[in-house]
């Protein structure tokens, strides 16, 4: 097992290096010379030369990358042009908010998607199956920023049940935190719930036809026991790994949700950075998201092996 994890980490290293190269290249896509912008309107040649020296712009691009990568490895992602704060500490302060949102969305998705998938598979071909599929397809087709706006219109503006925006830490005021996050979490979890429903249904359909399920039924076990103890336990395996994989997608989906509900998280950070032309922050956020995504991939792979006894013994 340890060897497998080690091997998996080794495979992730070249991917990480390539990701860092892409993120570095992003900066080079910028039109114009950033040093000239930094030098201001005067464009004093001495200042320009000094800035080029300081930012190592005179070095070949390969060397520039190595300097940048060495800084990143030391945890130095640069400084925000707007607030002058280190990018890493900016990200560290926003990340817990987004993680809370993503975890709550995942909870919604699991609570809705998995039971709906089981029900749809067990009642295949009936109106229940048809309805569940229609809802899942709608969940995949609805833009989450529109769903958010519609919910604000209905729940906050018309009914006045929940606040339309804002954020409170669960450690400061748990109730307020819950009421501000419940709507965004639902919005962000919709597409994930739809994906989980479709995968659970398909996995359950495969398992329900297996010999051991037929045997369990032939033994006279009750329908619910067969479905939950025999079928679902085997069908849940790919769903668990998929959930881990989709966690990375949630971080990306949070960009729009946080924008609509004015949640000061990771997603809002990148959008604000884009509009303030704070490119160091944009780069930092992209790099951190990619690293998080690779990490979740790694966790999904390891989980798959841990949860599958056949693969565990094969390791």
């Amino acid at each position: 097992m340890l060897l497998f994890i080690l091997r998996r980490i080794l495979i992730a290293i070249p991917t990480l290096i390539l990701v860092s190269m892409f993120v570095f290249t992003l900066q080079k896509l910028l039109p114009g010379d950033p040093i000239l912008v930094m030098a201001g309107e005067d464009r004093d040649p001495e200042v320009i030369a000094l800035l080029r020296e300081r930012y190592r712009m005179n070095e070949p691009i390969v060397m520039q990358y190595f300097y940048w990568a060495a800084d990143v490895l030391r945890g130095d992602l640069g400084v925000s042009l707007r607030t002058n704060e280190p990018v890493l500490s900016l990200i560290a302060s926003k990340l817990p908010v987004t993680i809370q949102l993503a975890l709550m969305s995942m909870l919604f998705a699991i609570l809705i998607g998995i039971p709906a998938g089981i029900l749809s598979a067990v009642r295949k071909g009936t109106w229940v199956d048809w309805l569940a599929n229609l809802i899942a397809l709608s969940g995949l087709s609805v833009p989450n920023f529109w769903l958010g706006i519609m919910l604000i219109l209905l729940v906050s503006v018309n009914l006045g049940w929940l606040p339309a925006s804002g954020y409170e830490s669960p450690f400061v005021d748990p109730w307020k935190s819950l009421t501000t996050m419940i709507m965004p979490a639902f919005v962000l979890g919709t597409a994930l719930a739809a994906t989980l429903m479709r995968h659970t249904r398909s996995a359950m359909l495969g398992v329900l036809q297996a010999d051991y399920v037929r045997t369990a039924r032939a033994k006279g076990l009750r329908g619910r026991v067969v479905i939950l103890k025999h079928a679902f336990r085997n069908a849940v395996l790919p769903v668990v790994t998929l959930t881990a994989l989709l966690f990375g997608e949630l971080l990306a989906g949070a960009v729009l949700t946080e924008q609509i509900f004015t949640i000061p998280g990771f997603g809002k950070l990148i959008v604000d950075a884009v509009f303030n032309r704070d490119y160091a922050v944009v780069q930092g956020v992209v790099l951190c998201t990619a690293v998080g995504f690779i990490l979740m991939n790694l966790i999904a792979d390891v989980l798959y092996v841990i949860l599958n006894p056949r693969l565990r013994t094969a390791q």
Binding site: P14, L18, F22, Q27, L29, G248, A252, V274, Y279, N297
Partner: peptide, 21 residues
Amino acid sequence: RVTEALLAMPFLIMAIALAAF
């Protein structure tokens, strides 16, 4: 390997970053 690295960057974040730059 390049494809895997590109896939590691979520679609929307990548699109936002590219559109921004």
